[in-house]
Design a protein around this nucleic acid. Sequence first.
DNA 1: ATAATAGTGTCTTTCAGACAGTATAGT
DNA 2: ACTATACTGTCTGAAAGACACTATTAT
Lengths: 286, 286
Amino acid sequence: MAQYDASKYERPSVTVDILVFTVTDEEKENYRKLSEKKLRILLIKRGEHPYLGKWALPGGFVKMDESLDEAALRELKEETNIDDIYMEQLYTWGDVGRDPRTRVISTAYMSLVDSSTLNVKASDDADDAKWFTVSAKTFQEQKNVTENGYILQQLIRLSLSNDEDDLSAVIKTEKIVEGKVTKIKREVIESPDIAFDHAKIIEYGLERLRNKIEYTDIAFNLMPDLFTLTELQQVYEVILGRELLKANFRRKIADMVIETNKYTRDSGHRPSKLFRFNPNWISISE
Amino acid sequence: MAQYDASKYERPSVTVDILVFTVTDEEKENYRKLSEKKLRILLIKRGEHPYLGKWALPGGFVKMDESLDEAALRELKEETNIDDIYMEQLYTWGDVGRDPRTRVISTAYMSLVDSSTLNVKASDDADDAKWFTVSAKTFQEQKNVTENGYILQQLIRLSLSNDEDDLSAVIKTEKIVEGKVTKIKREVIESPDIAFDHAKIIEYGLERLRNKIEYTDIAFNLMPDLFTLTELQQVYEVILGRELLKANFRRKIADMVIETNKYTRDSGHRPSKLFRFNPNWISISE
DNA sequence: ATAATAGTGTCTTTCAGACAGTATAGT
DNA sequence: ACTATACTGTCTGAAAGACACTATTAT
């Protein structure tokens, strides 16, 4: 490595993109039944080229005098007015062609907010910020056995929607096992409505969320201060994409919550006890 | 966001740093006893400013026409001649002052190699590349209970050594729990021999390795093609930093390995069966 | 025979999964 | 009384932890 000269190297742009997830109630149609929960993500309609009019993750360029974390918090505040929340770094996307303008490397962050934040959208920046329900489904799976390993290919359909828009994208993941070495590739196959490679970032975030909810306490970042155990269970169910048995679920999360003496009211059926998060729950690290 | 103009923004430099881990046998002193295993990491002695003469992670600047992954593989090949191995992205470090020259954002990768790679060091670049045994120990822990949460502070001593050098650093981790929101900070307190913030990157990598070995098959990337179950167990033990019970360990990894009809010889005791990795073991995702 | 490690059997405890039962508000 | 949900008890089987036992080579 020669004597360093900062001006000598051409440098990529660095941005942050933020996945803001929340879980909200759907409007209840059926009389006094419990309302269904939906997982949602916040997207912003682009008001400029490239991808004009397409939907993208909130985010922007990192300034020279702020850390990546600070940049992510600032961008989120600027674009959505959301503040003081859970945020963790997800992954850094650095493929060459991911932005048609120049070389852009982007660090993605994942943020979880409780549904009361839902209304606080679109601030100073007059951009169009909207919540979309998210779901990802594997609709094709193919396994090819090779010399000493195999290749597993999955096609995943990502669907985002709200009352006005229905967005959709297809992501291909490829798991290549050869001998001891495993590699995972992720590629956007089709993304007519979602800008850049954001579809695959969202899909990756979903996967991380699904994994982490099993062994950490992140789910509580999606909850209000007081909640019922059924609500908590619904949040787990909507993220995991499957139903859980009530008795078992309650046993599993028992130590993570503290019971209060408050109850829900006027629910049309037996009231339920309200709980709050137990901050002294001992989680395993990272 | 105004109309984009690439030249308008000042841009940070982007680098990759690679943590290359391996597990090696110590020279056996005691007659026919099994040799102890040590976890090692590859460092490079800096031949230029800043941190001239200090030890640093292999790595370097990302070029405009290569992805982050490609940059990491290329740098590793250039500096150490190591090729075709397991590598995963770890984390991106983007604090403002981490490089005294300019703003540098660095994506860290973790790579695991088997000990036969040990000899293949220092290639074209005439830099001094050396393997160091690694260990990290928490030597102070402090918990302060706050209004609605707590702050947990840990001081960790990172020790790196080989026959010539003994490096040491102190890292402070701070876990701040306030209500539902948890934040983790990691800070280098003292690092006289290790360049930049690389001490905390190494500590973070160790933690990730320790976590992932519990629920994935990454450990096999540290093994040669054929290995005994005792060797495999030793690798687990040196990474986890605790002893495991043989019978239980074997039950746990039973499905991950395939038995061969080969045995060790001339060991001074009962020979042991050699195994290899089972690439069809179904791991959980991520 | 002895040192040293290889490899197995089984008891216990813990935890996940399944299911069935009882309890209580609102209409 | 009926609907809808809240909440609990317990059986089963799988996995994790602990420990003791047998087996096999080189000297």
